[in-house]
Amino acid sequence: MPALIECRNLVKTYEMGDQVVHALNDVSLDIEAGEYVAIMGTSGSGKSTLMNLLGALDQPTSGQLRIAGEDVRALGPDAVSRFRNRTIGFVFQQFNLLPRTSALENAALPLIYSGLPHAERVKRSMARLEQVGLGERTDHHPAQLSGGQQQRVAIARGLVNDPKILLADEPTGALDTKTSKDIMAIFDQLNREGITVILVTHEQEVAEHARRQIVFRDGEIVEDRS
């Protein structure tokens, strides 16, 4: 059985004026279903570029990228949207919740684009909010929630479509130490339940929650340890 994520000779270059920047330089990498991976590196190391590729938010310049059996490069714009909607859950550093919108509606956002009926959307997002410990606050707006609670809503939103991969970009970057631990505990728990979790971080403490750490420097993998 092939790996959940297969990267073969991935290259990503950007043109900045007349300079060509190699953000990713011939990266090959497999991630199996159920893994708990931390992608590490300093700013500009290429970890964010890889995350955008793994999240199907961007296309590689060359190389092969298969996620959950799909050749991402072959997908058209609408197909790639549908693919993200069904396959990947995102968690961001800044939570990216819609303001003045309830936790429930925020968590249900991806389901709108899955074409599910309203009742089903409410049912599923309610279940996910309960899973992250926010079952009591489903009608609260982001402004009425603490940072940790907001990130829980964001995690519920990432999970609501039963994705194969949960992709978290610096998920504790905007949180204090205590709250960070609580949030990381949620990721640990989710991974124990079988979800593939990929963390992108520059913090060693966060990375240590993962069972595999991949370190990037100058667009290349310099370390891959389990």
């Binding site: 549908r82 909607n85 069904r86 995102f90 961001f92 990216n96």
Partner: peptide
Amino acid sequence: TREIGLRLAVGARRAD
């Protein structure tokens, strides 16, 4: 802008 980015990320098509 961020809301749009989020919607696109979680599965909105450009037409949506």
